Simulated scan of single mutants.
Amino acid sequence: MSDPDLSDLDAFMAVARARSFRGAAAIRGVSASALSAALRRMEAQLGVRLLNRTTRSVTPTEAGQRLLERLTPALDEIAGALDTVNSFRDSPTGTLRFNVPTIVARHILPPIAIGFLAAHPGIKLEVTTNDTFIDVLAAGFDAGIRYEESIERDMIAIPIGPRVQRFVAAGSPAYLAAHGRPEHPGELLQHACIRHRFASGVVAPWELERDGEIIRISPDGPLIASTIDMEIEAAIAGLGLIYIFEEDLRGAFASGALVPILNDWWQSFSGPLLYYPSRAHMPAPMRAFVDYLKRERSR
């Protein structure tokens, strides 16, 4: 019986962590069929089933889980050893895989990523958007960006982007002329409002705050969407009021397409954090990104 090669072992780890051939393929930049072939080859060589596959899920068998637990530190050590070569380059090379919320991908990460990639032409950055908290390591990512309440305590976290953000409320001039301007959050219940549905299926209540008083309401309206652009266009068209990240509405405010309302009740919160696992050896591309962030923040 021949032993599996390192590429097949790595394929197994990717699929077992992501619990999906398609998800692992997207992260690895290969086809799902290539990963499936590697798993079949590996299981044939070892003579034991490593993954249970159904149309909806992929889960390790007991043998697969034991193998995953033993392989993870070993392959991480090999990757770290190979990555030490990067320290001898003028600029490190490799791929960074980030998982970030939509708001970060839209407004916060682009200028940072552009500057970083210009400074490090040997590094490729892959960004996946996800508005729910995930185990970035298990999913095969190098790091994630989330807000403070979502980050596990055993992760290293550093600031990225603005330190304070706000949710802001707005309506079109035509809507406000026809329906009036609310002066208190409670009045939103008498207005048409445009709501956002997260990927988890949750339609979160609107939370407004002034002088320590927090009001949570779930107003009704003609549209619930999971696409920010559609929600903004609907508000501009006068279908209802909107309450979302300030960054998303700056253009509409500047053009006059939307008008701020309930300004005193806009809720502020801490900005996002880049988080990544604590390791004895940080991969050179990740170290380069962290160093770049720190330099930019010190300017």
Rank of each mutant, 00 (worst) to 15 (best):
I123D: 02
Y175I: 07
G47S: 05
D3E: 13
F12A: 07
L35C: 03
V127C: 04
L71T: 01
T128P: 00
R181V: 15
Q190D: 11
D83I: 00
A14P: 00
A74K: 13
T84Y: 13
E149D: 08
P159H: 06
L51P: 00
T93F: 13
D264H: 04
E231F: 11
A237E: 10
V100Y: 04
A34G: 04
V164L: 13
E69H: 11
M155P: 00
A143D: 03
G271P: 04
W265D: 02
R56E: 15
A174V: 12
A16L: 07
R279A: 15
V203L: 12
F12V: 11
I134N: 04
M282V: 15
N99K: 10
A139M: 08
K124L: 11
I114F: 08
E152T: 00
R19A: 08
I242Q: 05
M230R: 14
D291K: 10
R195G: 01
P73K: 12
P101C: 07
A177L: 08
P162V: 01
G171W: 03
W266D: 08
L293H: 09
Y276S: 03
P260W: 09
G212F: 13
L258E: 06
V168Y: 11
D83L: 07
F21E: 05
A16G: 01
E296I: 04
D154E: 09
R295F: 02
E231Y: 12
A199L: 14
H191A: 03
N99T: 11
S7A: 09
V203H: 12
E77Y: 15
I103A: 04
K124R: 07
G23H: 08
I123R: 00
A38Y: 11
G47K: 02
P205M: 12
I194C: 00
E126R: 13
V290A: 03
A169V: 08
V30S: 03
L35Q: 02
V15I: 13
A174Y: 02
E77W: 15
D83C: 07
A105N: 09
P185N: 01
G271A: 07
L208I: 15
E148Y: 14
A235V: 14
R70K: 12
V104C: 04
D10H: 08
D248A: 13
S268K: 02
L241S: 08
L96A: 06
L249R: 10
S7W: 10
A11R: 02
G64D: 11
S91M: 08
R146Q: 06
G240M: 04
I194M: 01
E148C: 02
F289S: 03
L68S: 13
L239P: 01
A81G: 12
K294D: 11
R97T: 09
I232S: 09
M1V: 15
S91C: 05
H120A: 02
M13S: 03
R97S: 08
A81L: 14
A63K: 09
T84N: 09
